[in-house]
């Protein structure tokens, strides 16, 4: 059956062990986690996890139900209308020729996040597919390290 990519926004009680319940659920039942981010929701006792997963429709339905079944789960949002963004950091040595880098950063909403005498760190925040493309394109500057954050999403 066809594999569908799905973004889930999961609101859970911000308590000990809740992340292990969720990662354990995915591992134990053989579900995919493509990315997972987590942070507390300000002024509440809750946290928001953004999970990017994939599976056929039956598996995706089970994932949502199994997440609901966990006692600390408050809400699972799976609506198709998400603003979904991802952040990437790329470290490039200063001895590279930066010709064209400015234009590339502009095209991907990027900036230079940090620099010192040996390298610069560029940062982009964009849709996950565009991050894929950016990370391919940036290869020509021979980056020494790349980090991506995983998606964060907000339902609209």
């Amino acid at each position: 059956m066809e594999q569908i990519r799905r973004v889930l926004s999961v609101i859970v009680l911000n308590e000990d062990g809740v992340l292990s319940r969720i990662s354990g659920l995915f591992a134990g039942r053989g579900y995919n986690i493509d990315s997972l981010t987590v942070a507390p929701i300000p002024k509440t006792n809750l946290s928001r996890l953004t999970i990017v997963t994939s599976g056929n429709t039956a598996v995706l339905e089970q994932i949502v139900k199994q997440l609901h079944k966990l006692i600390p789960t408050y809400k699972v949002i799976e609506s198709g209308t998400f603003v979904e963004k991802e952040l990437a950091l790329v470290k490039i040595p200063l001895n590279e020729d930066f010709n064209g880098l400015d234009a590339m950063l502009k095209a991907y909403n990027g900036t230079i996040a940090s620099s010192n005498e040996d390298f610069i760190v560029v940062m982009v925040a964009d849709d996950y597919e565009r991050i894929d493309n950016f990370l391919k394109a940036i290869k020509k500057y021979n980056p020494i390290d790349m980090v991506r954050s995983g998606s964060v999403a907000m339902d609209i």
Binding site: A58, E61, Q62, K65, Q66, H68, K69
Partner: peptide, 11 residues
């Protein structure tokens, strides 16, 4: 009573 039991094995 368990929604995750419904549709887990057969539609």
């Amino acid at each position: 009573i368990d929604p995750s039991s419904i549709g887990k094995i057969v539609p």
